[in-house]
Design a protein around this nucleic acid. Structure first.
Length: 600
RNA sequence: GCCACCGUAGCUCAGCUGGCAGAGCAGACGUUUCGUAAACGCCAGGUCAAGGGUUCGAUUCCCUUCGGUGGCUCCA
């Protein structure tokens, strides 16, 4: 695939870059410093990663922030020694002799010898040669490449960032090691720039903004991963939902509503108790019958479909619901709005005839892109996941569905990658991911075929020949979950939502008490025009009111004093700091309406 | 779930090695009526996450639980 080539090319470029060598070498120098401090340390792997590097160690005690400081300081000292990085190819036996006290290295050498795994533990085809790199008093099993001399690393452009636990080989059944993360750059300025970017990202963190802007909260007394939407967050959600409903209404969806619990038998039939039980909560006992809180909406929609005999003339049928589901997530993975235990999916299920399937996929893909773009996400990437080894459904159906998905992607013109074998066992899928304002990627939409449930629930429609046939079923969520989508929106806009989404669009700022009445009258006019307005009638100075409105990221501030009242105007200030100045109220309304229309 | 760190007023944070709980902002009240990012004064605000232990005495030390942060793992 085109994009795939670009991506792998980018990765190759990085791996051949000077920066990559610097980071990889910094990891070795860090390991040398750690080994000096803890001679009994067992060291595992230490690659360069995006923006930095890490190294995993098994150490006699947990590392403290002071340890990081001293290790970092020692690294600077080691760099000054001008040690050369020297490469040497050895046999497996020689390597084992050198690393006889290093069990992780021995395991890696075994892997290399068997020709199955490379030094990062990744599968490899050919049997690689075993190479060592030595600098100073430290020798590591490593493929390289490295810098030639330690002084090619600028000691003022490195920084150790954090220590974290990491399982050996990423396997939770194996020992947990201590991973030290660090970052390294060509110059101190680049390091400064990187640290600045991290600070900026922190300021946009939806958890911080959610608090500062009073959008939502999660409280201990209610429970982890359970979201309270405050009035301002609720306002935004309502706007999103209204837009969503209008668009769905206009595009042939029917709205359905379904309960939050269902009998154990339902989840047996759907296969959730077989395949998804880990993520479901314990059952409730109601009059001796077991009920489960729903982790998904599909079985309910399916029963609505099954409630009547369906003719081929009725299809496609599209059922949409903002369905609230509950899934057990391990405590360590919960994260603000992004990963929660109760959330609302903008869910829908399509039931169609096999011959309608390509058109149906075209439709749903276009519709998804339209919705995402409406929220200001211009950069969208698609990922097509195909049949895994273990799967249900006839192979011909898989091929037809995969072809339909890929053809649609081609027609849509967006970039996509293929994840061979990455589909769910019940069907292939397209995932859409957006890039936010900081270039970070977030998965939102998912469009999934389901070959499993039509069988399990024995779905039918009556064909032209009067015989029952099996419909295709597509499951899709465009925003994903409203919670997660909201989190992504907050970070994308840094809390400065476009006017159409802003919970408060206009702050009226009367300068003195005598301007209150005019401000309130104007507010009434603006509200009649459909704008969301607040009047700041506190006994505060104008500067303070402006500051507060700025901090609330309210798009328009209208300052009102003697001059404005005299000329029947308002003085416009924007949250960008721009100050267009006095304009007629009607002119302002026009401008605001246009911005809302354009969703900016 | 695992490893490390953390939890003090609504928010942001002080509180050294155990000895009566502190600030700024926000809030209430009063004064001020002001031209594009913080007026002034006064008042109130706390089971120091919860429970247990050590101690003459625990916000401080120890244990357990709950919650958060960074990772790992997981993510139909």
């Amino acid at each position: 695939m085109f994009l795939e080539e670009i991506m792998s090319e980018k990765k190759e470029q990085y791996e051949e870059s000077a920066l990559y060598r610097i980071r990889h070498s910094a990891a070795h120098i860090m390991a040398e410093a750690v080994l000096e401090k803890f001679p009994e340390a067992k060291f595992a792997i230490g690659p360069a990663i995006e923006d930095g590097f890490y190294y995993d160690f098994d150490l006699p005690r947990p590392l403290t922030p002071e340890d990081l400081e001293s290790i970092e300081k020692r690294m600077r000292g080691l760099i000054q020694t001008k040690g050369k990085f020297e490469r040497k190819v050895v046999s497996a036996d020689e390597a084992k002799a050198i690393f006889k006290d290093q069990p992780f290295k021995l395991e890696l050498i075994d892997g290399l010898e068997a020709g199955e795994l490379d030094e990062d533990g990744n599968p490899t085809q050919e049997k690689p040669e075993i190479s060592l790199y030595t600098q100073g008093n430290f020798t590591d099993l490593c493929r390289g490449p490295h810098v030639e001399v330690t002084t090619q690393i600028n000691p003022s452009a490195i920084k150790l960032l954090s220590v974290a636990g990491a399982y050996w080989r990423g396997d939770e059944k194996r020992p947990m090691l201590q991973r030290i993360y660090g970052t390294a750059w060509n110059t101190p300025d680049e390091l400064k720039d990187y640290l600045w970017r991290m600070e900026e990202a922190k300021k946009r963190d939806h958890r911080k903004l959610g608090q500062d802007l009073d959008l939502y909260s999660v409280v201990d007394e209610i429970g982890a991963g359970l979201i309270l939407w405050h009035p301002k967050g609720g306002k935004i959600r309502k706007i999103i939902e209204n837009f969503w409903s209008e668009e769905h209404e206009a595009n042939g969806y029917d709205f359905v509503y379904t309960p939050h619990i269902g009998k154990a038998q339902l989840w047996e039939t759907s296969g959730h108790l077989g395949f998804y039980k880990e993520n479901m909560y314990s059952p409730l006992d109601i009059d001796g019958q077991q009920f489960y809180l729903k982790p998904m909406n599909c079985p309910f929609h399916i029963h609505i479909y099954k409630n009547s005999i369906r003719s081929y003339r009725d299809l496609p049928i599209r059922y949409a619901e903002e369905g609230t589901v509950y899934r057990y997530e391990r405590s360590g993975v919960l994260h603000g709005l992004m990963r929660v235990r109760g959330f609302t999916q903008d869910d829908a299920h399509h039931f169609c005839r096999p011959d309608q399937m390509p058109a149906e996929i075209d439709f749903v893909l276009d519709f998804s892109l339209h919705i995402l773009r409406s929220f200001g996400f211009a950069s969208i990437n698609a990922y097509l996941s195909t049949k895994p080894e273990k799967s249900v459904g006839e192979p011909e159906r898989w091929l037809a569905a995969e072809a339909a998905l890929e053809d649609s992607l081609k027609r849509s013109g967006i970039d996509y990658q293929v994840d061979q074998g990455g589909g769910a066992f019940y069907g292939p899928k397209i995932d859409l991911k957006v890039n936010d304002a900081l270039g970070r990627e977030w998965q939102l939409s998912t469009i999934q075929f389901d070959f499993n449930n039509p069988e399990r629930f024995d779905l039918k429609f009556i064909g032209e020949d009067g015989q029952p046939q099996r419909p295709y079923m597509v499951h899709r969520a465009l925003l994903g979950s409203l919670e997660r989508f909201f989190g992504v929106l907050i970070e994308h806009y840094g809390g400065a939502f476009p006017v159409w989404l802003s919970p408060i669009q206009v702050a009226m700022i009367p300068i003195a008490d005598r301007h209150f009445e005019y401000a309130k009258d104007t507010a009434v006019q603006l509200r009649k025009a459909g704008l969301r307005v607040m009047v700041d009638d506190r006994s505060e100075r104008m500067n303070a009111k402006i500051r507060d409105a700025q901090n609330q990221k309210i798009p328009y501030m209208l300052v009102i004093g003697d001059k404005e009242i005299e000329n029947n105007q308002v003085s416009l200030r924007l949250r960008s700091g721009e100050n267009p100045g006095p304009i007629a109220i009607s002119t302002f309304i026009e401008r605001a309406k246009e911005d809302i229309q354009r969703k900016i």
